[in-house]
Computed example of a mutant assay.
Amino acid sequence: MEYLKFSIDYGIMGLLFCMSILSFGLFIERVFFYKALVLSSYKTKKSLEIALSNHLTTIATITSNAPYIGLLGTVLAIMLTFMNMSEQGIEATKIMSSLALALKTTAVGLVVAIVSMVFNNILVRYSERFLADYDEEV
């Protein structure tokens, strides 16, 4: 029983933390890339599009999957609650701590997804502006 609680607390939460660090790191990398971008160094619009959209798919994947990982933690924590209830009877303190764990993973998953979505939207907007500027130069 403790192993499952440990797995949820550190496994799911750790995975969500790693996803948030990855999303933030890729966002910072893209911002620095966009700040140093010289449009005239690209021969075709397609090569510019490829350079601009690099890593955006990873951030979008984190955005779409973080809530599901949080939900997985919720399902596992609710299973833990039911297992505790069947083995030890109904103790309000144990039930509440397991349900709090379930809500914690859902909340963290949603926070990671929301922040990553903001990062992705900012970067897509930058990308669209650079493509529009490139069209004006040509």
Rank of each mutant, 00 (worst) to 15 (best):
E2F: 03
Y3D: 13
L4H: 01
L4G: 01
K5A: 09
F6V: 14
I8P: 02
D9M: 11
Y10Q: 15
I12V: 15
I12N: 07
M13W: 08
L15K: 08
L16M: 08
F17K: 02
I21N: 07
L22H: 03
L26E: 07
L26G: 06
R30D: 00
F32I: 02
F33Y: 03
F33E: 06
Y34L: 12
L39S: 12
L39P: 09
L39I: 12
S40E: 13
S41N: 15
S41V: 13
Y42N: 00
K43H: 10
E49K: 06
E49M: 09
L52Q: 00
S53W: 02
N54P: 01
H55Q: 10
T57D: 10
T58L: 08
I59S: 04
I59D: 04
I59F: 04
I62W: 02
T63K: 04
S64P: 08
A66V: 15
P67L: 04
I69C: 03
G70Q: 06
L72M: 12
L72C: 14
T74D: 05
T74E: 00
V75F: 15
L76H: 00
L76M: 07
A77I: 05
A77P: 07
F82P: 01
F82G: 12
F82W: 01
F82C: 04
N84P: 07
M85E: 06
S86C: 11
E87H: 05
E87K: 12
G89D: 09
A92L: 10
T93K: 14
I95F: 11
S97Y: 07
L99K: 00
A100M: 15
A102C: 04
L103W: 03
L103D: 00
K104V: 11
T105Y: 04
T106K: 01
T106G: 07
T106L: 00
V108C: 09
V108Q: 10
V108I: 10
G109L: 05
G109K: 00
V112S: 00
V112E: 08
S116A: 09
N121E: 15
I122T: 05
L123F: 00
L123M: 14
V124D: 01
R125M: 00
R125W: 05
S127Q: 03
E128S: 01
R129Q: 14
R129L: 15
R129M: 12
R129K: 15
R129E: 14
A132L: 09
A132C: 05
D133P: 00
Y134W: 06
E136D: 10
E136K: 09
